[in-house]
Design a protein around this nucleic acid. Structure first.
Lengths: 190, 190
DNA sequence: TGTACATCAGTGAACGCGCGTTCACTGATGTAC
DNA sequence: TGTACATCAGTGAACGCGCGTTCACTGATGTAC
């Protein structure tokens, strides 16, 4: 008893799980609604019971990714020495590591974010990882937060970790722990 | 006289021209061999007289992009004050500006590079812009070039400009000249 | 406790689409005699 | 100078593909009486 008609359990959650699994294996450009449905053991049509269209499914994958990202960042920070400098470095390292561990998901999160309503105030959303990074950067500033100079420093730090992540994802530089540590450790302390 | 059968002029060059035009207008993921052929006023099949397949056409677009990129970098450097610091900043600015001016081409160059034979020694190839940046960074080092520390500084600078470019392309931060100048001017001088 | 019924998560067939690529071909060109 | 011919850049029809999405439907569920 308690069995649902054809599918058992929460199909919506299962579709997201399978979707993330696919992103872990291949590029986001090959992410296919039909294939996700197939792997979830369900007809393509069934997806439309849970998401209005493919784009909505992708948005949900980004949301899930954002949560994972935020959790990874938070954990890294909690393990770091409780001073702004080390915390920032720990955040940066977590940022790059997450990107390397989830290449397609990370890319999807990045490119999808720009398609969304830019002034969406749903902070639990896909950008929670970025917000965490920004908050950490803001902490570093102390009283002069909000200064123009401070904002530039924040962007600089973000650009550095993001660039490091992207160059490694694109195979332009080796995805090497020593390089990550070298760049972040020596240079990121503002 | 001198007219070719159906098409007039160098179709190969025309296809590349049209391809770059398409990249200037839309994302690389929507780049279609058929559409390029259509806009070149030629049947899809004709493309195969000049390129073995679509991937080869794309590679050629990247090569063309690499040349434009390199030229932009070189010009920016030639206009800069002839000291390592200002030249590096000028390079970085040109790097970001090229990315902003050619979003899809820049992305294609980045993601395609990793698919190629990594130890290809064709330096006139798609990475000429990167080589120029790296060379400039190397100049900065002077006698201690090749040091581990020097290499890290180079990666750091590259990551910063690249990250800045990507964040702006993805709409994560405003594509703002003031931000570019602020980040590069204050922080990039190693 | 038994029965009629609304709900709604699933089904499978079908749609139109544009893609990259292959095929056998055509017909203008320039060249060798 | 005229003619036979090889070359080869183009043609248009067709291939199989997988995609996202729509459609009318089915049948198990839980609920109201």
């Amino acid at each position: 008893m308690k069995t649902k008609p054809y599918h058992h359990g929460d199909l919506r959650a299962e579709l997201i799980r399978v979707g993330l699994e696919h992103l872990a294996r291949g590029p986001a450009s090959l992410l296919s609604l039909r294939e996700i449905a197939r792997d979830a053991g369900v007809s393509p049509t069934a997806v439309y019971r849970h998401f209005p269209d493919k784009q909505a499914l992708e948005a949900e994958l980004c949301r899930a990714g954002g949560q994972q990202f935020g959790a990874a960042m938070a954990e890294a920070q909690s393990k770091a020495e409780n001073r702004p400098g080390p915390r920032l470095v720990a955040s940066g390292r977590a940022y790059v590591r997450f990107a390397l561990a989830n290449p397609s998901l990370f890319r999807l999160m990045m490119t999808t974010a720009s398609r969304e309503d830019p002034f969406t105030r749903d902070e639990a959303n896909q950008s929670s990882g970025f917000l965490l990074l920004r908050r950490t950067i803001a902490e570093l500033a102390g009283p002069d937060a909000g200064t123009n100079e401070q904002r530039l420093k924040a962007v600089h730090a973000w650009a550095t970790v993001h660039g490091l992540a992207m160059l490694m994802l694109d195979g332009q530089i080796p995805a090497n722990e020593a390089i990550i540590d070298g760049v972040l450790g020596d240079n990121l302390a503002l």
